[in-house]
Design a binder for these strands. Structure first.
Lengths: 93, 93
DNA sequence: AAATTTGGTTTATATTATAAACTAGTTTAT
DNA sequence: ATAAACTAGTTTATAATATAAACCAAATTT
């Protein structure tokens, strides 16, 4: 039985990654809304995904305010695909 | 976005449940082999699943040794099905 | 110019997972 | 018959992880 990637096998990070899978650059606040996470938790989990190179984080300013955007990397996409395959075989779906 | 049942969204417990989904009564040692877990971890996670009534645990003796068998309950089966549906919608699969 | 809001980050705490240590007994070798 | 080794687990101490509360810097509103 193949092991589930523990970085992806966590609800918030999986929500983030599966959300990012369908779009390009997404703002922090958009993810906040999409995932219903707290800001602190979202910040921490985004950094973990970034550290693993599953997403990239780009910081800028918009209308004078800091603005953080994220998008998935190729590695992130590959790992998600692989995670899904593992799940499918585990669950027979 | 529906929440993933945290009792099932854990690798070992998910392995246990998805293994039990396809069989009837299974012995502790069989699960040990099927999941490659440590005995302690398996014992703990089985108890959690039993506490939630997702599985039942039956203790007996075989050839003088204690023997523990488990099987899934109807609730366990329902919750697994529901977990899979949530995952599918989350991951678009 | 004080109070509030925005857009986050850091960090302390709570939760969870895991493996090491233990229990209780059985079998085997001496 | 008794010590050593093994079976089949459980308990518990520690490690890892998740989460939210507290914080920060700057911008805006009053």
């Amino acid at each position: 039985m193949k092991k589930l990637n523990p970085l992806l096998h966590q609800e918030l990070r999986l929500s983030i990654i599966s959300f990012l899978a369908n779009v390009e650059w997404v703002e922090f606040n958009k993810l906040l809304e999409a995932t219903s996470a707290s800001k602190g938790n979202l910040s921490v989990q985004l950094k973990k995904l970034e550290t693993a190179d599953y997403i990239e984080i780009e910081k800028s300013f918009k209308d004078n305010y800091p603005l953080t955007r994220c998008r998935m990397t190729e590695l992130g996409r590959d790992e998600l695909e692989s995670y899904i395959q593992t799940l499918k075989s585990m669950l027979d779906i």
